[in-house]
Every structure is written in C-alpha cells, then in structure tokens.
Amino acid sequence: MAGLAIAAAAGPALAEKVVPATKVMPYLDKFLRLPPAERSRMKLSYAILRDGKPMTSLKAALVEPSGARTPLPMNDEGFFERLPTLAQLEQGAKIAFDVPADLKLGSAMDIAPQLRPAVEYEVRDLAATVDETNAVIGKTAGVMAFMAPKFSGIAFLKAEGGLAVFADGRAQPLPLIRSGPYFRPEDFKGAVRVKLTKTPTKVAFYSGKK
C-alpha cells in the first residue's frame, strides 16, 4: 500500500476539505487510459488516512465542475467502494470530505489481483495475473517506476496451507508466511494447479523473493 499527503484545495473555509481527485487517487487516470484488456487482472483501491490509519466513517463526495455531487461510500476497511471515471478525472473533478479544510489527511493506494477466494487455482491464471500487473505498473509509474513495487507471486490470506500440483501428479507444499501460504511461479516451474487447505479470506500480491 502506497501513501501520500493530501493538501487542502480552495474550498469553503473550515467547512470541508476539497481536493482534486487526481491527488487523492494518484495513477488512477493513467491506469484507466490503458486498454481494459491490459488491466483486467488487477484493481486499484484507495483509502483516506489520518495519522496513518484508514478513516472508515469518513463522508466524501465527488464534485464535478458543474457542481454535481455523487457520494463516495467507503467499506469497512476504509477503501472507496466507487472510483471516478476517466472522463471525470480529466474534467477536473474534486473530492469533498466532511472534515475541516485544515485537517491533515493522507491517501493510500492498494494494488490487488482480480482473483476470487477459492480452494483451487490454475497456475496459468496466477502467473498471468502477476505478469500483467507488473506490466501495468511499469506503464503507469513513469519516471517513478524504479520505486514502484514488483510482485513475484500471489498470497492466500488465512488459507492455512496449500500444494502446487504438477502435470504428472506430483505435489509440493507451498511456502508459508504469517498471513498464509503464497505461490511464486518461478519456484514451481511446471506446476499446473494450486490447491489450498481452505478458502482464503483474501487474495493478495506477494512481493518477496522467497
């Protein structure tokens, strides 16, 4: 998860904080400019932080140049459930927060795979998800690409354990970290399937080397 500070833009003094949407959600416009087929295996999510922690009960609205407002609800983890469209971002839409204009806030971006929690996955889908996401990051990060994350695999949170299954029927245990097992395609060349002990609570990217 990457974060940055949000400064107040011009708006009603001390009534609310109004910030350009592109500052609240960096790289979203570049991401949406890519052809959908090139970014179908990943998703971006954004949260608002105060003192480094997500604000789960914050009220926010998208404000378009016409003055029209659209509520932007957040989920239990503090991430926006709805994001602006590319057209809205390009037209200069802003986001209004129901907090004093001088309140210091931060923004966090999360990159996640478009993989549903399941007990079994095809390795080709896992590998394609990792490869596509790294390619998207390279295309959207621009001159900051060297600082962008590079993912090496997929993590299965709270799945307890799992196996990499090969075409000949052989199986090899997946390595474990505190949150659960993970799969790196480079470590299991020739594997065709991943079978987990239980359905993960969440599927995430893994960026470690082992």
Rank of each mutant, 00 (worst) to 15 (best):
A155I: 09
A13E: 14
L44S: 07
L58M: 05
T201Q: 08
K43D: 06
L103C: 09
N75W: 00
P20E: 11
K59Q: 07
M42Q: 03
A68Y: 04
P35F: 00
Q91F: 04
P149C: 01
D110S: 13
D187S: 15
D110T: 02
A68D: 11
E90Q: 13
G153R: 05
I111V: 15
V123D: 10
T199H: 02
L105S: 14
F188G: 08
A68F: 03
K210F: 02
D125P: 08
I111M: 09
L4N: 11
G208T: 04
F80D: 02
Y121G: 08
A10P: 01
D76F: 00
G52H: 07
M1R: 09
A8E: 05
F183T: 09
G153T: 06
E81R: 13
R116Y: 13
L49F: 12
G162L: 07
L115I: 15
G169A: 00
P71G: 07
L115A: 11
A61P: 00
L72T: 02
R178A: 14
K53I: 03
S107M: 11
E120G: 07
A87P: 07
D110L: 14
V203S: 09
T197Q: 13
E16A: 14
T140R: 09
F146L: 09
F188N: 07
E160P: 00
L163N: 04
A15D: 12
V119L: 08
M147V: 03
K53G: 00
A145P: 03
F80W: 06
L49V: 02
K210S: 13
E90G: 03
D187Q: 12
D131N: 11
K94R: 15
E120K: 10
E122D: 15
A191I: 06
E64N: 11
A155M: 10
A155G: 15
Q172K: 13
M109I: 12
N75E: 02
P173H: 04
M25E: 13
A128Y: 06
N75I: 03
R184I: 15
D131T: 14
E38M: 08
P84T: 02
A101K: 07
S107V: 12
P54A: 07
R33M: 13
N75H: 01
Q114L: 11
K139G: 01
E122Q: 14
R178T: 12
G169R: 06
L176C: 04
N75S: 04
K104Y: 11
N134W: 06
K59A: 11
G169T: 00
